[in-house]
Design a protein around this nucleic acid. Structure first.
Length: 742
DNA sequence: ACGGCTTCGACT
DNA sequence: TAGTCGAAG
């Protein structure tokens, strides 16, 4: 009842038709012209090929790679061993068959499955350290991002838009002309494909893949299945991780499908199966409907399956849930979901937090200080990794906390989150964090209740977290300039405080005047000496001779144009919103025949190759047949080339550092498509990069202020926060005008 | 004593 | 904007 009220009030006030355009809170594009079309045709128009790839019990796999003797055994990853054996955060499929569930604690899991192996999450600074999982996720992304636009949806999931690659295969080597299929693709599950008793499932799948009378969409999906099985093999080969995948015409369906057959399998959702699939799908299984909205649908409308939604008109759903959500519901009931796959390989924020349940609650400023210091250290480390590896800078620091208050039975008040401009350097982050905390605490306790000190605090903090957001890329050119001037740009993540990027605050020199924590815009970056002596936010340059002063003094600011030229990929979205062509007549790039096993051509040495038509299941059979770690296997790829495959425990720590960088732009212009590297190019080109028309690396820093104004301005742009224009409408002429030159 | 920790998006 | 809230994995 109550959610609907809130939504009603919001959306009714914004009268029909006004808020229609743009992205709703559920990421749905409302398309007027599409709405006029009958359902079937609308769906038919969506001939994209989207995949969702989901790592199988990822944390477990990461631990099993570290300890290969755990492979194939019931295993779970736990954190914090203290309370009832620790909390399970990942459970292997062997353990799941014993009835072990993720919500259990270690002790329960031991009861349910006495043979289970419990591995602890690494701990650093007294808290869980997820870095090894993050890095492992990056390894996977670096493989998966090679055949199409790739969106890192979480630490262990990605979406891929494989439309272009699938279209290309269909044109050049359509499945119906292929004589051999990799075994893995024959293991696909095809929804709606009936496997009659006594029939060979693989043979049925093979026939489905190469039906010449299939619809265009089905053929595209078949190509998608080929690509995805290949990618999954590649992931296994490069990372030793298995994953599951869904291949469908949109993100929603792909996501649904990837969960249908786990682990290490893939599922295809042909158009013809969609209606039946949704008809029986419990409403709560749908992404975004697992929470209150789903409950509200059940209790208020009596909707139990997604298909049940079909009986409600769009208007009705809008009346209940608002315009955007209503339309979204109406669409998903029909299997329609226009969300784009965002080309984003890196996270948008970094956070570090810890809870202090019940008795552990922090009751003194000192203990809060201590833990904030730990959290800030970790955050700082990750910020510097990001800077090193991805040339990105975060601009906002936010503190979240939870606290309770005893006595004084004021109505319960939430601990407010607070944020301020982020200054690089552990000490500075720590200082700012505690100041933010104190500001929050004041609000939390209320004005009258400002008992500062003493042991008898009436408050306790049950969770703390710090996070860094508003991350922007520095183009490589800027990086080199920074290096020139500062000479302190960290080249390895160990040198932490070598670069301070200071966000200039117009007002007080630290967030201590908490009232002023907000409202400091506009702010700008300055490069500052790295002495960590204190809080220096002064607008004046430390070194007046520093040529950067001229730049940062030059103001004039961010133009919309420069935003559109940013390498963050935004400009591409403008184009992607254009209606799809029916056939990919032009602009096709060569994509290697997916059944071939060309090396990815990256950092990975030729140490590991797997036979082309070997299935993932076979991989494991082989693995268990020869357990010895670090064993070399000689296998032959489809081209008849002998290669060696090494399995088992490589020294995991080393391998992480090799990989933990991902998505660093390759410097390809759209023109220089080299067929040899086509896989990489197709994958990377969507990222959109290098707005520079000069090679900044070669510019003498001492004369930077003599440079052409465009260069200075661009440089300046990168020292300022992005201002996201509201006017990024599709087809706006300014967009096109400033797209990277062809 | 909420499973903990992390990330994202929409909304106001 | 900063801050809140919901959701997911």
């Amino acid at each position: 009842m109550s959610p609907k009220r809130a939504l009603d009030m919001v959306d009714n006030s914004s009268a029909y038709g006004i808020k229609h355009k743009g992205k709703s809170r559920l990421g749905v594009w409302r398309e007027k012209e599409a709405e006029a079309m009958p359902v079937v045709r609308r769906e038919t128009c969506d001939a994209r090929v989207i995949a969702h790839v989901d790592m199988d019990c990822f944390y477990v796999q990461v631990e099993q790679r570290k300890q290969p003797n755990l492979r194939g055994l019931p295993t779970a990853v736990i954190q914090y061993n203290s309370y009832k054996g620790g909390a399970l955060i990942a459970v292997s499929y062997e353990a799941r068959t014993c009835g072990v569930k993720r919500s259990m604690r270690g002790e329960e899991a031991k009861e349910a499955c006495p043979q289970i192996h419990l591995v602890q999450v690494p701990v650093a600074r007294g808290k869980a350290d997820l870095n090894s999982y993050r890095n492992a996720g990056s390894e996977v992304v670096s493989v998966l991002s090679q055949k199409g636009r790739c969106e890192r949806a979480s630490i262990d999931e990605v979406y891929l838009d494989l439309t272009l690659a699938a279209e290309t295969i269909l044109l050049e080597t359509p499945p119906e002309t292929m004589q051999d299929f990799a075994e893995e693709v024959l293991n696909s599950h095809v929804l709606g494909l009936e496997i009659k008793d006594g029939c060979d499932a693989k043979e049925e799948v093979r026939k489905w893949l190469c039906r010449s009378d299939a619809s265009y969409q089905d053929k595209l999906l078949a190509c998608g299945a080929l690509i995805v099985s290949d990618l999954r093999m590649q992931v296994l080969k490069e990372t030793e991780f298995t994953c599951s995948a869904g291949i469908a015409h949109n993100k929603m369906l792909a996501k649904l499908a990837s969960a249908m057959n786990k682990p290490a399998q893939q599922t295809v959702v042909p158009l013809s199966s969609v209606e039946g699939l949704l008809a029986s799908l419990p409403i709560k299984k749908m992404k975004h409907l697992g929470g209150k909205l789903g409950s509200s649908l059940q209790s208020d409308l009596g909707v139990n399956t997604v298909g049940d939604l079909l009986q409600f008109s769009e208007e009705k759903l809008q009346q209940w849930y608002g315009i955007n959500t209503g339309t979204w519901l109406w669409n998903i009931a029909r299997g329609i979901n226009g969300e784009e796959v965002e080309g984003r390989l890196l996270p948008k924020s970094h956070g570090s937090g810890k809870t202090f349940p019940g008795p552990q609650a922090l009751k003194t400023i000192d203990s809060v200080q201590h833990w904030l210091n730990q959290l800030c250290e970790e955050l700082n480390e990750r910020l510097h990794s990001d800077l090193d590896q991805n040339k990105r800078i975060a601009q906002t620091l936010t503190l979240h906390a939870r606290a309770y208050k005893t006595g004084d039975s004021d109505s319960y008040r939430k601990f407010p989150s607070k944020s301020c401009p982020l200054r690089y350097g552990t000490r500075k982050i720590q200082e700012d964090a505690i100041i933010l905390f104190q500001a929050g605490l004041r609000d939390f306790l209320g004005f009258h209740n400002c008992k500062a000190h003493g042991n008898e605090n009436n408050w306790g903090v049950t969770s703390l977290s710090v996070s860094a957001s508003k991350i922007v890329s520095i183009p490589s050119g800027t990086h080199s300039i920074v290096k020139y001037f500062g000479g302190k740009f960290p080249s390895s993540s160990t040198s932490n405080q070598s670069l301070d990027v200071v966000i200039d605050e117009a007002v007080p020199s630290s967030p201590s005047g908490s009232e002023n924590c907000s409202g400091l815009v506009p702010y700008e970056f300055q490069l500052q000496d790295h002495d960590d002596t204190g809080i220096k936010h002064s607008k004046a340059c430390l070194d007046p001779k520093d040529p950067l002063c001229h730049l940062s003094g030059k103001a004039d600011g961010l133009t919309e144009e420069s935003f559109l030229m940013s390498p963050s990929g935004n400009e591409d979205r403008m184009m992607l919103n254009e209606p799809r062509r029916n056939l990919p007549a032009k602009d096709l790039r060569r994509v290697s025949n997916i059944s071939s096993l060309k090396a990815v051509g990256k950092k990975k040495t030729a140490g590991k190759k797997l036979q082309g038509n070997c299935s993932i299941a076979n991989f494991f059979n082989n693995y268990h047949n020869s357990q010895s770690s670090l064993e070399q296997k000689n296998v032959t790829n489809v081209n008849g080339v002998k290669m060696s495959l090494s399995l088992g425990s490589k020294s995991s720590d080393d391998s992480y550092s090799t990989y933990n960088q991902v998505g660093v732009p390759a410097e390809h212009s759209h023109e220089e498509i080299d067929t040899n590297k086509s896989e990489c190019t197709v994958g990377n080109m969507q990222q959109g990069r290098q707005p520079w028309s000069y090679n900044v690396d070669e510019i003498d820093p001492s004369i930077i202020n003599e440079l052409p104004p465009e260069i200075q301005q661009e440089f300046q742009t990168w020292l300022r926060p992005h201002k996201r224009p509201n006017v990024g409408k599709r087809g706006s002429s300014i967009t096109h005008y400033f797209l990277p030159q062809k």
